[in-house]
C-alpha cells in the first residue's frame, strides 16, 4: 500500500504458534508530495481505463428478456413436476408442509372416490410468504417438487399470489399410469389455479371470497396468457 511490504512472522497465542502477516503502518509523518501525486494519478488512470463502452457490465432488463438465461437451480417459483403423461407425483404425504419453516404450503387431501385412499386434493402454495428456501423440495421423498427460475411474479392483487399448484385432484402418476384409460378419467378431478380456499394460517378474512375460476387449461400455477393481471410470456 505504501511501498512497504507486509512482513511474515510468527506469533504465540494461547500457547500455540500462529503464522501471521503483519500489515505495515502508514508512515506516521504525513503524505509525501511526489508519492501523493502519483497515487492520485494512478487512481485517475484506473477510472480512465474503464471509461469505454466495452467495459460496461450491466444488462438492460427488460430489453434483454429474450436472451436472458438464469441458472437451472435458481429458486423463484415452486412447481409440481409433471411426468411424461402430464401427471404429478404428489401423494399428499404432507412432509413438505411440515418442512416449510413458515407455513407457506398447505396440502389438502381427500379420500379418493375410486382408490378409497388418501390423495391430493389441492396443493396450495403461498408465494406471498414463501422464502424459497428449498426445504420442501428437499423433504419430498417422491421428488414431486421443483423450484424453477420464473421470477417475474409481480401482480396487482395479493390474492393472485396464492396458487394451487396441481391441475387435477387425484392420485400420483405411479397409480394413474397403471390404471386403464376410462378409470383414469374418474380418478382425476380438475382444479383451477386460484380457486383454493383463501386465506390460510387460521385467519379468516371476511368478505374475501375465493377468486373466480380461472380459464381452464394450463392452470398449473403459472400465470397463463389469458390472465389480465399477469405478465405475458412469463413461462417462455
Amino acid at each position: 500500500m505504501t511501498g512497504e511490504k507486509p512482513k511474515r512472522s510468527v506469533r504465540i497465542l494461547g500457547g500455540r504458534e500462529v503464522p501471521v502477516i503483519v500489515m505495515p503502518r502508514l508512515p506516521g509523518k504525513g503524505p509525501h508530495v511526489a508519492r501523493s501525486a502519483i497515487s492520485l494519478l494512478k487512481g485517475m488512470r484506473l477510472t480512465g481505463s474503464y471509461f469505454r463502452p466495452s467495459k460496461v457490465v450491466t444488462r438492460q432488463y427488460p430489453e434483454n428478456r429474450k436472451t436472458l438465461k438464469l441458472p437451472e437451480r435458481f429458486r423463484a417459483r415452486l412447481k409440481l413436476i409433471d411426468d411424461a403423461g402430464g401427471h404429478h407425483k404428489c401423494t399428499g404425504c404432507k412432509l413438505c408442509q411440515k418442512a416449510c419453516p413458515n407455513d407457506s404450503i398447505r396440502v389438502l387431501t381427500r379420500k379418493g372416490p375410486v382408490t378409497q385412499k388418501n390423495e391430493l386434493d389441492r396443493y396450495i402454495w403461498r408465494q406471498d410468504s414463501c422464502i424459497v428456501c428449498n426445504a420442501c423440495v428437499q423433504a419430498c421423498p417422491f421428488g414431486a417438487l421443483e423450484m424453477t427460475g420464473d421470477f417475474e411474479s409481480a401482480v396487482y392483487d395479493r390474492r393472485l399470489l396464492i396458487h394451487t399448484l396441481n391441475r387435477y385432484a387425484g392420485p400420483p402418476a405411479s397409480v394413474l399410469d397403471q390404471a386403464a384409460e376410462a378409470e383414469r378419467e374418474k380418478m382425476m378431478e380438475p382444479r383451477d389455479a386460484y380457486g383454493g380456499p383463501t386465506p390460510m394460517n387460521g385467519q379468516a378474512m371476511p368478505e374475501v371470497p375465493p377468486l373466480l375460476a380461472a380459464p381452464p387449461g394450463d392452470g398449473e400455477g403459472a400465470p397463463s396468457a389469458g390472465k389480465p393481471d399477469n405478465k405475458e410470456g412469463a413461462d417462455s
Binding site: 507486509p6 511474515r8 500462529v18 503464522p19 501471521v20 502477516i21 503483519v22 500489515m23 503502518r25
Partner: peptide, 12 residues
C-alpha cells in the same frame, strides 16, 4: 495460510 494482523488496524 497466514493470519493477517495489523498494528494500528491498517487494512487487514
Amino acid at each position: 495460510f497466514d493470519v493477517v494482523v495489523g498494528t494500528v488496524g491498517d487494512c487487514v
